[in-house]
């Protein structure tokens, strides 16, 4: 058992080292969300007003945070594809370590890098004037980590069955990007047609964004308990799926 912990720790460390060495990945990961935040927060924010009052910038900030975590996590999972292409995956697959530990190490590592990206974004948001009450930070990080690890596992699952990055790009365009749009990250869901609302209900990111909104702004669409419940269920599904699909890679 101890042995498995050591393996998980080292695989986690590997993800962190790779992330910290890649300046372009760090900058790139918050580039697009940053522009979304500025364009929406200051562009649209100036012409719309929210029903309950409050600034649109504050409303959209948790959504943008969700975007950072979503894309950061899914791309961390994609490292499995890079490992396949560069052959490193074999080194881990032939080691006397459980497949589950390998997945867990990767997932924890990937989630950590996503949370680091999220922290950078929070910092940028604070500078831009988003209100981020300090006492909410611990709970916020907990939700961020939960969201990240679930989506990294989704990324690992997809990467396990993908042959190359092109296929993965397709998934990003047709699954991940819509997930972001339907999550209510950039507009309140009450104001959209019913059909879109239903789509948002099956989008797991909806509950992540909602939870972060509750933490930061005190209230949102659902209750925190519901959000966390759905997120934990989603986490259970994606991690099991990742473990299952990753185990099937070898042959």
């Amino acid at each position: 058992m101890n042995q498995e912990f050591i393996a998980i720790y080292f695989l986690w460390k590997r993800e962190i080292i790779r992330f910290l060495r890649s300046k372009s990945r760090i900058i790139g990961s918050i580039g697009m969300p940053f522009f979304f935040l500025v364009m929406l927060g200051f562009g649209i924010g100036g012409i719309v007003s929210l029903e309950g009052g409050g600034s649109y910038l504050d409303f959209v900030a948790p959504g943008i945070l969700g975007m950072v975590l979503l894309f950061g996590s899914v791309f961390s999972g994609a490292i499995v594809i890079i490992d396949k292409q560069f052959g490193f995956l074999k080194e881990t697959l032939v080691a006397p370590v459980r497949r589950e530990s390998i997945v867990l190490g990767k997932a924890l590592g990937g989630a950590s890098t996503a949370v680091i990206q999220g922290m950078l974004m929070i910092f940028v948001m604070a500078i831009l004037g988003v209100s981020i009450p300090l006492h909410t930070i611990p709970l916020l990080f907990a939700v961020m980590f939960l969201v990240s690890i679930a989506f990294v596992s989704l990324g690992i699952s997809l990467a396990s069955i993908m042959e190359d990055m092109h296929g993965f790009q397709l998934i990003v365009n047709f699954l991940i990007f819509p997930m972001f749009l339907f999550s209510g990250a950039i507009f309140p869901l009450d104001s959209v047609p019913e059909i879109l609302q239903y789509l948002s209900y099956i989008d797991p990111l909806t509950y992540g964004v909602d939870a972060m909104r509750i933490v930061l702004m005190g209230t949102a669409r659902f209750s925190l308990a519901l959000d966390l419940g759905v997120l934990v269920a989603f986490l259970a599904v994606t991690t099991s799926l990742a473990a299952y699909l990753f185990r099937r890679i070898e042959n």
């Binding site: 590997r14 080292i17 560069f86 080194e91 032939v94």
Partner: peptide, 13 residues
């Protein structure tokens, strides 16, 4: 121990 025919190193490390 095994040394694969194809490279299996992490080049970033």
């Amino acid at each position: 121990g095994i040394v694969f025919q194809d490279q299996a190193l992490d080049e970033e490390l």
